[in-house]
Design a protein around this nucleic acid. Structure first.
Lengths: 221, 221
DNA sequence: TAGATTGTTAATCGATTAACAATC
DNA sequence: TAGATTGTTAATCGATTAACAATC
């Protein structure tokens, strides 16, 4: 059981999301050899308020130095620790169709320490096939592989019809966080974290503005 | 130039997103032969408040009947019109790598009326290749094809390094809304709508909660 | 020290929810 | 009519922002 011990108040979802964004920015700054950065400088890059940057960080501790700002390398390390990016997570990928295989090839995940350590698919034509150094398992092997490989997260990339069923089996097998790409909302018990990423809802949001004649100006946040 | 004429106040981003969700739910209800639905019934399906459902709808007009609720078929049609889902949108897909080709095959887009009408890629090995009934174009053909095919939206699925450059060319060519899957934030002039869908930020959000020991309970909204 | 920038408190803003008159 | 449910106003809640004492 990781961290806590000294309380962390309930952190807004948007703060966590911004933390991700800050972390990347800091990694770039570090590459560029920048040593310190102020909340003002950080905020400007994302059209945010400097108080918001400071408040986001203040949920987790005091990382800055008055009169100076933040040490880039130090802050990046702290944020990576907070986000759990200072370790490797073992990820199950369920569904190896077009989207599933694209996600498997997507470099972004491995770069942040998310290692797809097992692939599952119900299609008998796919089960047993080798994908790089992995073999595609049938879904019934879930409980065994979750234990054997220490899988903690799952990416769901199956058709809408089977998404809820697959999810229930993931949760039963002990998976603690799920990223769902199936074009349907799925539900989980409340000690499991779930993020529904419904790709076409994103496009529908855009078409709304086009349908209104684009106006409406970019939303403030 | 589409709609307006009678004012629409600034609509919160989250309202538009929920409109998408209601629309799908209504389509399902209609398939099941349900004739009317109340804001209460609709809200329960998504753990929302019924007042919120009514308020979301009230931005656009009065669609309900007191004492009855909403006619499913009528409300679905109204919402589809509002979201711009009552017509077909011509979409440019830029980048035909793993993610790009998965998105091209993704049925969800076409189902909602988003038709990928042109594919662009800078890789000389890909330019000229046929993909179903389309041919992959080089980026320099953008302005011509935007005009010829009436492209209004673009999906960006290129590497992080080229995302901003590609975006600038899309905007210059007259594209009005962009869905960006490249793992970097891009920026556009403020009369263009942009949605950054950074896949690994979603996973990072999940790892945050795992790193804290999952607790933190699912966020209220 | 003087200047800069933090961490935090208080004010503001916006979104969610409760409550209810209107009305089917 | 009596019961149900809307559309809307007012209250609540939470997140963003301004302001500033603390301090490097």
């Amino acid at each position: 059981m990781p961290r806590p011990s000294f309380k962390i108040p309930k952190v807004p979802e948007m703060t966590v999301r911004r933390l991700s964004i800050y972390t990347r920015c800091l990694a770039h700054l570090e590459e560029d050899g920048v040593k310190t950065v102020s909340s003002q400088e950080l905020a400007e890059r994302f059209a945010l308020n400097s108080a918001q940057v400071r408040k986001d960080l203040a949920y987790f501790g005091e990382f800055g130095i008055r009169g100076i700002g933040y040490y880039v390398s130090n802050l990046r390390a702290e944020l990576q620790r907070i986000l759990g990016l200072d370790r490797e997570w073992q990820v199950a990928l369920v569904g190896y169709g077009n989207l599933g295989s694209a996600l498997f090839r997507y470099r972004g995940f491995a770069q942040q320490g998310f290692r797809i350590a097992a692939i599952f698919d119900e299609d008998p034509a796919k089960v047993g096939k080798a994908v790089d150094d992995l073999t595609i398992f049938p879904l019934r092997d879930l409980p065994r592989e979750v234990r054997a490989r220490g899988l903690q997260l799952a990416i769901v990339a199956v058709p809408a019809e089977s998404a809820q069923l697959v999810t229930d089996r993931l949760v039963a097998a002990g998976i603690k966080a799920i990223l769902n790409f199936a074009p349907t909302r799925i539900k989980v018990a409340k000690d499991v974290r779930l993020k529904n990423v419904d790709l076409s809802i994103e496009l529908e949001g855009l078409s709304f503005y086009l349908a209104q004649g684009v106006r409406q100006l970019p939303s403030p946040r």
